[in-house]
Design a protein around this nucleic acid. Structure first.
Lengths: 108, 108
DNA sequence: TGTATATTTGGCTAAACTAACAAATGATGG
DNA sequence: CCATCATTTGTTAGTTTAGCCAAATATACA
């Protein structure tokens, strides 16, 4: 793999990596469901320190997955690209496929 | 987030994490393009030790993204689920979106 | 102005993770 | 038996990072 390709796949991996954490997945899922949430709301839902949630959101923003909008004292986050939901769909089908194979093993 | 949800998002994250590496992304891309590749072919393309490639493939297999088939001395890998290509498509559109925003910053 | 709330950031620690190579082990084919 | 292909083990070194606390910043409201 040459340097150019290396850089290309590193850039892609960076974006995917931003999704590869349970808390951030939850946040993305919640934003997809509700459209928009402020940090304090997400903090309560997730149940960790607000500074931690803020960091997770900064990662998602840095990757270009979410965007923020200041409204008074609150900062509201929302999805910047809708297609991230395809991620979930695909992950679900992989999991279903894994489950099916495990059942096959049990039967035989 | 309760324990049940925690487990749910951890399982999802595990699958996404398996894709969050440039070499593994390259491999998935290559398998999507060519349909099937043995370890030795991939090793030459990637340009790292064969044992390293084998490990990457084991991770992808463990996540349920690829499957293997033994043919004589070689082991051929192929995609188990086609929808992973949606990942790429989405990542591309996120990157395009990022680029567009950067250009806006330059103009203003 | 002063206080409370919301958010980000710096500092820090512990920990997990992981990629990579080398070497040993297994399996297959000639 | 030897060569090739592949996996596994051991190891190292490096990165990463998630989490909390505390400090800094920003806004709203009394």
């Amino acid at each position: 793999m040459d340097a150019k390709n290396q850089a290309k796949y590193e850039a892609r991996a960076k974006i995917i990596k931003a999704m590869a954490h349970p808390t951030r997945l939850f946040i993305v899922d919640e934003l997809a469901r509700s459209g928009r949430r402020c940090v304090c709301e997400l903090t309560e839902m997730v149940g960790v320190d607000m500074s931690t949630v803020s960091r997770h959101l900064a990662m998602l923003k840095n990757a270009g997955i979410v965007e923020d909008e200041k409204r008074g004292a609150q900062v509201y986050y929302s999805l910047r690209v809708q297609c991230v939901l395809d991620f979930f769909e695909c992950v679900e089908s992989v999991m279903k496929c894994n489950l099916k194979d495990q059942q096959k093993l049990l039967v035989s």
